[in-house]
Nucleic acid binder design. Structure first.
Lengths: 179, 179
DNA sequence: TAGATATGTCAATATGGCTGACATAAACGT
DNA sequence: ACGTTTATGTCAGCCATATTGACATATCTA
């Protein structure tokens, strides 16, 4: 592999040569993100497994909690899965009393999604263990750490999707400005 | 949900009240990490799909590339999957000439894993698109960004697993100090 | 030589994705 | 008012990737 660094991208162009080499794949970061996400997800996985739920259920709980009254189509857009895949987990969640669907008042074709009290409790529990992980990771950095993390994670998202995600978050925060 | 913030964790204890409320779930960060990881993984997914490979193949390629000569048992430990699950993807990769297995010289029961030139090329290609994403996300921060990201991601990993991951990365970097 | 270890493989099962086809109800446009 | 589009649901079947338990083989180790 003589050309190992040919198409390399400089990670820190402003840094000359002191620490580590700037070119070449950032294997360490790739690996760390892999493990970080594995454990981040693992927090919730344990709790969910006890209820017979999987990650698909978690994602639905999360987004419905965060955007109460969202349409099924919105959820499909966000999760980028098919109606059929969503249908299965949504049915589980409705049958077991975590989610309710209410017909839209303006457009009665819509089945607007809401969590029940039971669903909200679970969603919050799941979010809190994950929040605790973020809190621990950001603890030692200064006051700007949270904003920095937010900016960094945003920059990791596809430019095409970024705006949409930012709008999504802004909307949720407007709806619930307390947190 | 009267007790909504009871078990909340402060994200920025040093920050009084200026920006956002410190208590309560960090829904924004949770969501951003979800999308960031989705897109991060998506970079490689596209490339892999063209070859008929999935994420399982990618993980094997990555870790074998990073730790040449690793044992099957080591890989099972890292990936936390079963022998049977690994077996399938490993067979694919061997049959299609991305991975070779060499009997250990000390212990001939071992089937030490190596990438072929073809495998190395693919592994590097995959790593480079992901590196580019990191580079873009860290670009605007200063020279310390890479180390900060590394520290942050490390802190996101389970304390129990952290040491092992750090050892893993350190070992790989010792073996390939150039990058 | 008797275990223990490293690996491989078989059969069966579960989850969570997918596609394509089709159904229903409601809204919308002309 | 009728036809089309939209929002949703559902059926049947397929695929990838994970699981467990059992068992086989080769090799090392005491």
């Amino acid at each position: 592999m003589a050309d190992i660094n040919v198409s390399a991208v400089s990670l820190r162009p402003s840094e000359p040569s002191n620490e580590r080499q700037a070119g070449g794949p950032a294997y360490d970061l790739i690996e760390l993100l892999f493990f970080a996400y594995r454990d981040f997800i693992g927090d919730a996985d344990e709790r969910l497994a006890g209820l017979g739920f999987g990650r698909a259920h978690h994602r639905v709980l999360h987004f419905v909690n965060r955007h109460p009254g969202m349409r099924v189509a919105d959820l499909l857009d966000i999760l980028k899965i098919t109606k059929q895949s969503l249908g299965r987990v949504l049915r589980d969640l409705v049958e077991q009393g975590y989610v309710v669907q209410k017909a839209g008042q303006a457009d009665r074709r819509q089945r607007l999604l809401h969590l029940t009290a039971k669903g909200e409790t679970l969603a919050r529990d799941l979010a809190l263990v994950q929040t605790r992980r973020f809190a621990r990771a950001l603890h030692e950095y200064g006051p700007g750490a949270r904003e920095a993390a937010r900016k960094f994670l945003t920059a990791m998202i596809d430019p095409a999707a970024r705006e949409e995600v930012e709008r999504l978050i802004a909307r949720a925060e407007r709806a619930d400005p307390k947190r």
